[in-house]
């Protein structure tokens, strides 16, 4: 079972829900939590953990081999991303623009652009309290999150079987990194806050989940701070609201210190139980 925890707007509580839910579910189930917000990974800050291994991750980009190049310019012609440019008697490659399609490399008549790995980030795997934690971290200066997210998802699939519940802390927004993160998920939990910003961005996230044909439901965070806009929207659209995490300064303070909330705030544990029951229901429904 793959559960993606996403939101349109940033800062609505993806990491809070991911880490608290992972720890809560781990009391009874085998869990792996993966932080796919590779640009700004935060889940690890809330988890006490012991490092199991660390892997440098790279992606493939072409490198110019001047000795075999005849400067025919075919590479420049076939690159749709302007990542390979012929300049005078030189071929220049701009790795930050390269999407790794291999066209220049494989269509070069003289094998003058072999693909070679270039570093993009680091994947770490840790043992947390009762569950496993995988994090990928994009190197600062790397602009493309998607290749690292794709590799991280593949890594989790290779190392964890179907009996493990896989939770994914996704990046914010609705563009390519989010799509990559949720496209293989069985269920998507959208977390939002009850404010006009929260509602606007939730409606975008709902559109995304619908476009991908995903089973999804909503969790409202900081319940009580705002208005009823989100709840009314969900009831109008027939969207299931799984839980309402109450707003409190205490919750904000626990968060600020990198602490889990549910061990200190019983109401939050109750709300997590509702999310847990939804996930279990989906799992059983899937088997039937």
């Amino acid at each position: 079972m793959k559960v993606a925890i996403a939101s349109g707007k940033g800062g609505t509580g993806k990491t809070t829900l991911s880490t608290n839910l992972a720890s809560y579910l781990a009391q009874d189930h085998a869990i792996v939590l993966t932080d796919l917000d590779v640009e700004e990974p935060n889940s690890g800050l809330f988890i006490e953990k012991t490092l199991k291994y660390e892997q440098k991750r790279s992606r493939m980009v072409p490198v110019w081999e001047s000795s075999t190049c005849t400067l025919c310019g075919r590479c420049q012609q076939v690159c749709n991303f302007h990542a390979v440019i012929k300049l005078g008697r030189e071929i220049m490659v701009f790795p930050e623009l390269c999407h790794g399609c291999y066209a220049c490399s494989e269509l070069c008549p003289h094998n003058a652009l072999p693909m070679q790995p270039t570093p993009m980030g680091t994947l770490t795997a840790s043992a947390a309290g009762g569950f496993d934690f995988i994090e990928s971290r994009l190197d600062v200066g790397q602009e493309q999150a998607v290749p690292l997210i794709a590799q991280t998802l593949a890594h989790v699939d290779e190392h964890y079987g179907d009996e493990v519940i896989k939770l994914y802390d996704c990046p914010p927004g609705t563009s390519c990194p989010v799509i990559e993160s949720i496209k293989d998920a069985d269920i998507v939990i959208l977390i939002t806050e009850p404010t006009p910003f929260g509602l606007h961005d939730l409606s975008l996230a709902v559109e995304t989940a619908r476009k991908l044909g995903k089973e999804f439901a909503v969790v409202i965070n900081r319940h009580g701070i705002g208005d009823d806009g989100v709840a009314e929207y969900c009831s109008r659209e027939g969207i299931k609201v799984l839980a309402k995490i109450p707003n409190s300064r205490k919750a904000a303070e626990l968060y600020s210190n990198g602490e889990l909330m549910y061990p200190h705030i019983p109401e939050i544990a109750q709300q997590l139980e509702q999310v847990s029951q939804y996930i279990m229901g989906q799992m059983n429904g899937g088997e039937a």
Binding site: T15, E40, E143, P172, G258
Partner: peptide
């Protein structure tokens, strides 16, 4: 948000950057 291509596009050519943060472990980290 983030550090990827939209942020790089946002920053290019700027004269002054205002960083907004909050005193939480993740706010500082980011």
């Amino acid at each position: 948000p983030g550090i990827g291509c939209p942020v790089v596009s946002s920053l290019s050519g700027a004269d002054f950057v205002v960083l907004v943060t909050e005193p939480t472990v993740s706010g500082l980290h980011d």
